[in-house]
Design a binder for these strands. Sequence first.
DNA 1: CGCTATTTTGAGATGGCTCAAGCTATGTGG
DNA 2: CCACATAGCTTGAGCCATCTCAAAATAGCG
Lengths: 234, 234
Amino acid sequence: MLGGMDDADPQLLETVALFAGTDAVVRAEAIAAGRLHDVAPGEVLFHQGAEAHGFHVLLDGRVKVTQLTAEGEQVLARYVGPGEMFGCIALFGETHYPGSAEAVLASRSLSWDGPITTTLMERHPRIALNALHTLATRVHELQSRFQELATERVERRIAHAVLRLAHDAGVKVAEGVRVDFPLSRQDLAEMTGTTLFTVSRVLRAWEKAGTVDVGRQVLVIRRPHALVAIANDL
Amino acid sequence: MLGGMDDADPQLLETVALFAGTDAVVRAEAIAAGRLHDVAPGEVLFHQGAEAHGFHVLLDGRVKVTQLTAEGEQVLARYVGPGEMFGCIALFGETHYPGSAEAVLASRSLSWDGPITTTLMERHPRIALNALHTLATRVHELQSRFQELATERVERRIAHAVLRLAHDAGVKVAEGVRVDFPLSRQDLAEMTGTTLFTVSRVLRAWEKAGTVDVGRQVLVIRRPHALVAIANDL
DNA sequence: CGCTATTTTGAGATGGCTCAAGCTATGTGG
DNA sequence: CCACATAGCTTGAGCCATCTCAAAATAGCG
């Protein structure tokens, strides 16, 4: 973790949705005003309940955002990929982070504190509109997940979660598509509102049917269309 | 439903969060650019799947936003109260409404189409920042509901839903706090991911314990603290 | 090569769903 | 003003998807 951004690559934000439609000068200004963080897998970027000190964009790697309940149960809010923003709820809404962010791969992020973010957006409304677009998409996705949890059985929910992971974090390999970061049964359970035991049974059944290959924290989707069929209850 | 806003009350938007911190001239400009809609209970403001034709602010009344699944099950996304915006996901994110909006009381709303909204926000970044604040709060609330659905049993979830309704749409009456619009067992079931039968049993049990009074589409909370105890599993 | 975290599998318990039947406010037309 | 229709609600009984808990197997790591 380090500050001092004078030597930073000016192209860092070129493919970041938040800065879409802004010109290079604005992006350079933003890079200069931000702080760059480098974290190793397992390192925590911020803790649930901590006072929000910034708003982040992930440049590289993968970050997992979780929420812990009062009873000690954990829920996995989402995995953040390169180019996505995170830790933004605290900044625009609450004053404290509603969840924790932990790197699951070596990651690099750029962050800005509240006043800087506000100034940036006031001067460049396009950035605020981009952020609105992203948050609107997030609300929509959360509503879909809520609907799934409210109306679908476990197997379908897991199928949806796996398809989403394949789409957002899948890399092509010989046998199909592999999720590009370590993913345990527990993680999948926390995403879909079930237990690691049930996830294990479901994945095992899929493996026997030749739909996926599973290993320790490894998931390879062999036949995506079979999962689509399960997800859509065909 | 009517357009032509020349005779509209210039104070219409004074207490609307989206316009907080803007001056009267800007609000007058916004009112002039918007369309006013009057709807009776049961009337639909927009249908799920329809192309988004606008972004709305509720001035008076109460609107229910629902989503229908491919299998025909319904989920209740939220109730919208005076001063809140709705139908905004479609505008900033998707191009079609992800849900339907139906008035549950006589209601009045003001709406703007996409280009007007964008122009307004580009000229007055404060409005975009206010919208960001609102959407961030929505994401946070949705995450809480998701967490509840994923980790809590039915009775606690219903208690949370009822407390939220009392807070957002409660009016003081002699016996306690009444939810100020017609609310069926089915509605509560669609909010909490359960069935109307289970909701009926739970409310009945609470009534016997003196915690609430229930009737046809009527709900009065007599002892909020008892519900808080249930919601927090004390 | 042993330690530890992860995963698998089994057996039993159960919360909440399903479906059927009856009940009761509320509104409506005669 | 009453009989009736209707939408909303209650209650019961049986079932089953999923959870719980225990124990063993496996894989990776130091």
